[in-house]
Amino acid sequence: MSVRTGTDSASGIAAQARQNVNIKRHLYALMFILPFLVVFIGFYVIPIIIGFHLALFVSVFGTNHFVWFQNFINVFTDPDFYRGLLTVLLFAVIQIPFMVLFALLIAFVLNTRLVKGSKIFRFLVFLPYAVPGVISALLWGYLYTPGISPIVGALRHMGLSNFTFLGPGVVLISIMNIVTWEWTGYNSIVFNSSLQAQPVELDEAATIEGATWWQVVSRIKFPLLLPTVFLVLIFSVVGSLQLFNEPFIISSLTSLPYYYTPNMYIYNEAFSFGNLNYAAALSFVLALFTFLASFLLMRYALPKRGNS
């Protein structure tokens, strides 16, 4: 035999070995993601399938009847569902722009060092985020309750004796205030970190050229920040549609309808009225609306890459 065939079989073995290593790597790659995949499929994917399956039935005296999409059709024509949806949309339309502008203001002032002691200030503003959402709602609930609240006390002392935070027209604004208090600091820190990542040369050059604070902010910093602003917007819209903790806690202080927000409707339908099938259909439609809202925002509102 010649030397040639020897090297041939040697490179064949080498190729075989490489292939083995390659297969082994694929297996390791799979092994590393496997634990996550198991819990992801078990407690994310399967529940979605179960929920959908559940939504295709109605339960009459304990026996399930297959009704195709009747529950979904009912949801789409359910005035209570639309009332809840309207509440969270109203909430979103007022609260989100207010909170985002508030957070932007804080971020820009901190970023351009307009005030002294910005480190302490940043910490104080971020503090509410460290408070569990339910506790924030409880805390503000007390601050809205006459008799215990120094705020209501002061307002009544000033002559507004009938003032209430919990009346039918006002309570939504009171809930907006809780959510604003919880999330403004968080969002302003998100904006602030994004601002810190911006190149400093641009606004230094602009300042040397004689640009004012407002010009630097509005012409340079804000346009560069837009992608982050839209990301915050999308997460806020998703959060608003899911509104539950705050109105749920507040409903122990004042009476709110069981359908006040879509998620309160889902909870009450399932656990106060025991109609799991319909609640599952409601969950699906709400998820659909949420997806739709974030999709539309991403598709049409998000600034295109490369433009900025």
Partner: peptide, 9 residues
């Protein structure tokens, strides 16, 4: 995916 949509399932 809104996590609350998963709670009931």
């Amino acid at each position: 995916v809104p996590v609350t949509a998963l709670v009931l399932p």
